[in-house]
Design a protein around this nucleic acid. Structure first.
Lengths: 375, 375
DNA sequence: TGTTAGCACTCCAACATGCTGAGTGCTAAC
DNA sequence: GTTAGCACTCAGCATGTTGGAGTGCTAACA
């Protein structure tokens, strides 16, 4: 009882001295490398502070009380707790702002399809880091209708193309209930373009719509179709059907702590399902909006997804200009190499805009393509 | 030496009697269920042919000599060999032709994007069968150019839309080197449409191309762009970038013989990479062309992919009319429930055409959409 | 001649046992 | 405050033991 009291008392005034911090970091770094619990003797030799293993043991005992490290079982070494990782990562974030490594041109085959680029990016990132990676397709915010083109394929078929600012192209073939003449198509084209061009998706309200329909007379069907097509672009922006590409799922098998059947199965499922990954991306983008900009790290249970509580996830939001943005994420064990991962993310974040411009991709993946080729 | 002689002699005149066949099938069926090697006593009780375990043992010994079954180690039961499975499957294929189960309307949410439908189909199939599933997007063969539409966005930008028969729409925004007038665009439209419409992709040869370029005068760039866009459709057809969707990758963990770290990692990789799955689909479609129609079964090493030698793959080609076809595939352990799988594939094969028509999807997934909505 | 009971043998899986190395906590001395 | 020393713990590994499942072979039976 007396000893219990003593302990409780000590907890209160325990402070993270510089020496403790150094020891903690040594433990973390060592564990990141090996994945094995690290013991006092290892630290005693590993570090430059000349201390015997016994002293280290005392300090480690304190660190455990403070919640920074955990002992998997008696007489094993210690491993970092989530709290320990957090401390380490926080410091990394502050410290490493200087190290914006310049981009040495991503080795990505020239292509002009957004989807292909995204797939190549995650693949490259996965092979660089040896972790599972994800990327969400850039989505647009508050864009304007740029151009509407109705073309008469035959008496009962119209091709309907809508171009949104940022050159998202959406097209659609419409089967008409009644026949239409070339002249009528021209009129509709004029009507729709004069009324809708330059408007943001939010600007198109019900009043305007019924107005246009009135003018369109018997061709309400066409107007509806065009509006639906525009609406489709909006839908493509919602989180619901956020496009996410992943790569390197099998990398989880590199890390024994994730590779047992049960965990692996759940993780593979999570990665395949995508919807849970979307939760991460949503959370990340939300934080981005609320000022907390840059690289975000989710350690274990900090993330929104139950099945990934043994993982850490690092995300970064990339910007393509014109309110066009997406998120890259890296999924690995808690003992991932945060430094390497964050540097890689920084590099990609900085270079993606460049890359997209280079390939001149401006369309969404499912809308056809608005690329430009070499002359 | 004498006994060796005797053995060799026996191999020659060993025949698959009806009783041996029954025993073999009993072994296979039992193994399909349990996944454990099955012993003589089990068969003795399991079957209605009243034989003691000793007799069964003799027969099993023969079956092993004939190569239908394998003993993982002395004093374990027997498991089917690839040859054994093959016999079993062949019989299934012949026998079950009658059982074309009618479709009870796939529970698929109405949607109009091809990609979404395919994703839902594999997902449904995976959850029905508890195996990993794949589907290749339907691809077109020998289609004709239907319609070309150039629209002037501004003095230096053209929107270029190409419609191929089957209503594949491909579009592209072109940045011009020099300015262009509305009139010139009209001329080019006329030129390209009169020259190219109705031609198959093969019809457009170099002679024709230089001819058109000559007439186009200074606007060679535009002609090139249109041709490139048409060529893109061809590229989309090649096996290289065949679109494949998969689902239920984590189902492999249901089967211990596939779930060990090494195998699982390779399989997950194979499934994720897609290119190896494409090999299966190519092989399957090739067989389809060479007359061997219907459901195809690849047992273990019969398939073209090394990393899947412990798996069986069952494929079926589905047709959508107009030379539009794709392939569905199911990937599982060799001891998969072939009967269930084949019935499911038959059902899907028969109903997919219906389903696509219902949703009126006619475009390729990356070309924008040519759907039709409810009136 | 085909079928069966019985027996010796084999092998895996599961469990117990013992040992070692790595690591800890505690205490006493510096 | 630091350190050496010691007793203790525990995972991991090798080794040994046992039981059950299964086989192959042989001799007897119908």
């Amino acid at each position: 009882m007396l000893s219990a009291n003593k302990k409780r008392k000590r907890v209160i005034d325990l402070e993270l001295t510089e020496r403790k911090r150094k020891i903690l970091y040594a433990i973390i770094r060592n564990y990141l490398e090996t994945g094995e619990p690290v013991g006092s003797r290892t630290i005693s030799k590993y570090t430059d502070l000349n201390l015997s293993s016994a002293t280290i043991r005392n300090e480690m005992s304190d660190l455990e009380e403070m919640g920074y490290i955990i002992q998997p079982h008696t007489s094993a070494g210690r491993i970092p707790s989530d709290k320990g990782y957090r401390l380490y990562v926080n410091e990394l974030v502050e410290e490493k702002t200087a190290q914006v490594s310049t981009m040495n041109s991503l080795m990505i085959a020239k292509t002009n399809r957004m989807e292909e680029i995204l797939k190549q990016v995650v693949k490259l990132l996965a092979s660089r880091t040896n972790y599972t990676t994800m990327i969400s397709a850039p989505s647009y915010r508050g864009n304007k209708v740029k151009f509407i083109q109705l073309s008469r394929l035959n008496a009962r078929q119209l091709l309907n193309v809508v171009v949104i600012e940022g050159n998202i192209v959406k097209n659609h073939i419409l089967d008409l209930d009644e026949e239409i003449t070339e002249e009528q198509v021209l009129k509709l084209n004029l009507l729709l373009n004069t009324r809708l061009n330059g408007l943001t998706l939010a600007d198109i309200n019900l009043g305007l719509i019924s107005n246009i329909k009135e003018e369109a007379g018997s061709h309400v069907q066409v107007v509806n179709d065009v509006l639906d097509t525009i609406a489709d672009v909006i839908r493509a922006e919602t989180d619901e059907n956020m496009e996410i590409y992943t790569s390197g799922a099998n990398n989880i098998f590199r890390y024994p702590e994730l590779a047992d059947t049960e965990r692996a199965s759940m993780l593979i499922n999570t990665i395949e399902e995508k919807s849970m990954l979307a939760d991460f991306i949503k959370d990340s983008e939300q934080k981005e909006l609320s000022g907390e900009t840059g690289i975000k790290v989710y350690i274990g249970e900090e993330g929104p997804v139950e099945s990934m509580k043994d993982c850490s996830v690092v995300t970064a939001t990339y910007e393509l200009g014109d309110g066009l943005q997406g998120t890259i994420g890296i999924i690995g064990p808690k003992r991932m190499d945060y430094e390497k991962v964050m540097n890689n993310l920084k590099t990609f974040k900085a270079s993606l805009g460049e890359l997209f411009k280079e390939n001149r991709v401006v369309d969404q993946d499912d809308t056809g393509d608005g690329k430009a080729r070499e002359p």
